[in-house]
């Protein structure tokens, strides 16, 4: 049941690189990561690639396979046509270290900035009481394996290095949501914090993060939208109220959005421009940008390549 298959794998580092062709044996039932391991054991012993559990549980082996952000351990070879070339490139949103390995420290920095669980001071260990129905909402978000595919695919930072400072990304919005919905967390400003410090307002709900989540967490519907809605609820604002009557819900103008670092209002219309378009905004990372133009096609949404560039398109 084995056959030779054509692979194109990006090899290089931060100074540049290109796609290299490999013919490699593929056996029944194998996943892309198996093929990469075979390449390491044969033609490319120093091919850099992260992996750990090989069972979709640790979120280490994230990469872009034929332009789509995937876990390589969960991408079966049988999902490709027999003659289809499989092109494997590193996550695009993060700087390349080498080959398929990127510098994902951005995510760990954002994690450190997100305020931790605040336990109730008067409840002793062992006395915590919570109902299953109340923990389930947060548990959905705690399924997150930190593969960072949602971060990688998020339009706000995928082609906008300049947004990274003010924007934490979907992974940390659901962390905030998880704590917000935690029955015993004592902080009451999770939503406001997400809006003011994490850049929640930048998100225009295209749902690309939800689509790539290997854990099938409903990041947008269950995490981001409730956080946005309740921010609106709490900050009663006649303009928001009027807007919600006039616009469809998802297009509620987020005029109150500010980020502490920018210190100025960031109207949603401004953040939207060029966000879902993936339209190849110039960046400082020349070598990577050039090769991606050749490989996966700049200007395409990796999850929905043919989708028209719109605002809030995924939100009904």
């Amino acid at each position: 049941m084995s056959a030779k298959r054509q692979f194109r794998i990006w090899r290089g580092d931060e100074t540049g690189g290109d796609l290299q062709d490999y013919m490699v044996e593929v056996n029944e039932g194998e996943v892309v990561l198996d093929v990469i391991h075979r390449l390491q054991a044969t033609d490319a012993p120093d091919l850099a690639c992260r992996w750990n559990c090989k069972a979709g549980k640790c979120g280490s082996c994230s990469m872009e396979i034929n332009g789509k952000p995937r876990l390589s351990c969960m991408t079966r070879m049988s999902t490709f046509g027999d003659d289809e070339t499989v092109t494997v490139t590193p996550l695009r949103t993060f700087p390349v270290i080498r080959d398929l390995v990127t510098d994902v420290s951005f995510n760990y920095e954002k994690a450190r900035e997100t305020p931790a669980f605040a336990p109730p001071p008067d409840v002793a260990p062992g006395d915590y009481r919570m109902q299953q129905v109340d923990v389930e909402r947060s548990q959905e978000f705690r399924k997150c394996i930190e593969c960072f595919l949602c971060q990688n695919v998020c339009h706000v930072i995928r082609d906008h290095e300049e947004n990274k400072q003010a924007f934490s990304g979907p992974r940390y919005f659901i962390r905030a949501a998880e704590l917000d919905m935690h029955p015993l967390d004592t902080r009451t400003d999770r939503k406001e914090y997400a809006q003011a410090e994490q850049g929640l307002g930048f998100c225009n709900i295209t749902k690309c993060c939800t689509e790539v989540c290997p854990e099938h967490i409903k990041i947008t519907d269950n995490g981001i939208i409730p956080m946005k809605e309740r921010v609106v609820d709490r900050r009663y604002d006649p303009l928001v109220w009027l807007g919600s009557k006039i616009f469809r819900r998802g297009e509620t103008p987020q005029t109150s959005v500010t980020t502490a670092r920018q210190g100025s209002a960031t109207p949603s219309s401004a953040t939207r421009s060029g966000i879902h378009s993936h339209a190849g905004a110039p960046t400082t990372r020349g070598p990577r940008r050039r090769r991606r133009a050749a490989s996966t096609g700049i200007g395409r949404c990796p999850t929905r390549p043919r989708r028209r560039s719109t605002t809030g398109a995924g939100f009904r």
């Binding site: 336990p119 915590y128 299953q132």
Partner: peptide, 21 residues
């Protein structure tokens, strides 16, 4: 038991019994 209960003070969310334990 103490080590598990301590995890709840760190934010862990285990599945619950009917009486919330």
């Amino acid at each position: 038991p103490q080590r598990i209960w301590e995890l709840e003070t760190y934010g862990a969310l285990f599945d619950r019994t009917k009486d919330g334990k």
